[in-house]
Amino acid sequence: MKFLTQLAQLPPEYNPFWAKEPGNDALLWIFLTIGVGIVGMLLLTRVPTRARRPIVWTFTFLSGAFYVIYYLWPMPIDRDAREIPQGFVEQGGFFMKDALPRVADIANVLTFLLLCLGIFSLTKIHSARVVKKQKDWFFSVVLLVAMVVMVIVGYWDYILKEFNDPNALLTKAENWGTVNYAYDLLFDGLIQQMDAAMFSMIAFFILSAAFRAFRIRSVEATVMMASAILLMISLMGAVDYQWSELIKGWTGDDPAHMLNNLNLSQISGWVKNYLQIPSIRALEFGVGLGALAMGLRIWLGLERGGVSV
């Protein structure tokens, strides 16, 4: 407890437990951490199969416990880095607040390692396709070349902008070199445009899906089609205006008349506010409860489904 108190009393930027100051033995700590990580991973590969589950559960439980405690414990917000915590509750809050970015860092490192695994799988599959000259192998060549070129150009551009540009000259296009132009061409000129092209295809897919869904085959499809037509018509200004004029004629422009409820905007508003939104909220309650139950089962190691067949 004394250790926790001492650590919590240090402001985050001077807290040696979570952040080493530059210029001292930081490099030694970096290599030490990498070394411990590699040894840890090697040891994990040697672990017998039956021990795998308890180890995974232990890590899962500890990670989950951190966030559960973080959620329940009173946390400082908008805290001055040099403030000294008063009492055990605040000490715990300060300590966990400082620890949160480091826990997120661990998750980031893990994500990086897993991304390497994903890239390895992608490279393996497509290299094999090229070597064996399988059907459409040329597309695999395009993928591999694009991946390598994008990684090289992307990192080169990043290094130039982050480390070799103290006066931020590269923020303006007139100071760009070949690499910066290449990155711009590949990212903004190609990837973004191709993303946009894929996204725009959704418009056509919506049309074909709507055509099939709105065919009157059942009572449900009829109700769906009727409400969709009603909502679409209510958004057409000219139709909505003509209809409301007609209603005005019936009601004699009396705002308290019951027939005002037949205005298209009133009906569509009622459908959205009293049918659609409550249904969506009910679904979201169910999804939220399901996620809570699932999270609990994973955290407490109660899940015995497919992931742990």
């Binding site: 969506i280 009910a282 999804v287 699932m294």
Partner: peptide
């Protein structure tokens, strides 16, 4: 679990798990 996407699936797929049926 994205309620906004469920209608798209209902329109285009043969069977859809709605809401907490997924869990």
């Amino acid at each position: 679990t994205q309620t906004v996407q469920t209608p798209f699936f209902i329109a285009a797929c043969d069977y859809v798990l709605i809401g907490d049926e997924f869990y």
